[in-house]
Amino acid sequence: MFGDYSIGDLGSIFVMQGFAGLILFSVYVLMALGLAIIFGQMGVINMAHGEFMILGAYVTWMTSNLFQSYLPGLFAGYFFLAMILAFVASGALGMLVEWVLIRHLYKRPLDTLLATWGLSLMLQQAYRSVFGAREVGVELPQWMLGSLHVTESIEVPINGVFVMCLTVLITIGVAYVMYLSRWGRQVRAVVQNRIMAGAVGINTEKVDRYTFGLGCGIAGVAGSAFTMIGSTGPTSGQLYIVDTFLVVVFGGAASLLGTIASAFSISQTQSTLEFFMSGSMAKVLTLLAVVGILMLRPQGLFALKVRK
C-alpha cells in the first residue's frame, strides 16, 4: 500500500488529504453545530436540517446572481451579505416551523423525526419546483479562486481556507452565545429543567422558538459556505443528514466540544482512507467504526449528562 511512495510524497499526501478532510470537517461542523443545538439541547430530531442548509445555499446562489446582474462592482463581497441573508431566511423558516409543527411534539421526540421527514420531502419538492431539478453552482469572486502553495508539493485551495476560517469564527460565535450570553444561559436552563426555568420567569416557549431558529439559521450559514466548495441541488441536503446525526451522536449529544471533536475525527478518518481505497469503502469503514464505537460507548465521546 505504501510501497510506491517515498517518505516525502507520503507526507505531502497526508497533508493534502488532511486538508481535504479539513474542508469536510468544516461542512460537518457547520451542519452539526445547528443540529447539536436542536437535537442536543432540545431533543428534537430534525430530519429537515439538510433542507434548511440547502435553503441557505439557494439564498447564496440568488444573491450572487443579483450582484452579478445589478452590482458587479461589489461582487467581491457578495458572500458576506449572502451569509447574513441565508441565516435570516433559514432562521425565519425554522421559527415558523417550530411554531406550526415542532412545539406540538416536544413530548414525542420520535414523532418529530417523522414529521420533519415529511417536511423535508415537501421542501425538497418546493426547491425542485422553484429552482429546477438541476444542480446550481455559484460563481466565486476572483479572490477566492486559485490555491496557496505552502511548499513545492503541497498546495491548498483558497476557498477551502476561507470556509475553514468561517467555520472557526462561527463556532466561536455559537460557543459565545450558548455559554456566555444571558440568552444562552436561559436556553441551558430550559434544557435542564423546563418547569423550574419557567418558574423563575423565563419564557420557555419563546426560548424554544429562538433556539430552533438559531439552529436552523446556522444550517443556513452552513449551506452558504457549502456553495463555496460544491454545487447545490434539491436533494443535496439529504446526503449529509445521516452523517451529521452520527457526528452529533458520536460527539455526545449535548456537548459542543464533543461535536467538534467527533466531526474532526470522522472527517479525517474518511479523507485519509479515501486515498488508499475507493470512496465508498472509505465511507463504509468510517461509518462502521463510528457505529462500532457507539455500540461500545453509547453516550458518545463527551457525555455531559445522563440520558434517560
Partner: peptide, 19 residues
C-alpha cells in the same frame, strides 16, 4: 433506545447501501 437507536439503525442502512 429511542432516538439514538433510530439514528444508529439509520446509519446501518446507509452503510449497507453504500456497501
Amino acid at each position: 433506545g429511542g432516538t439514538y437507536f433510530a439514528i444508529i439503525t439509520q446509519a446501518v442502512a446507509a452503510i449497507l447501501t453504500i456497501l
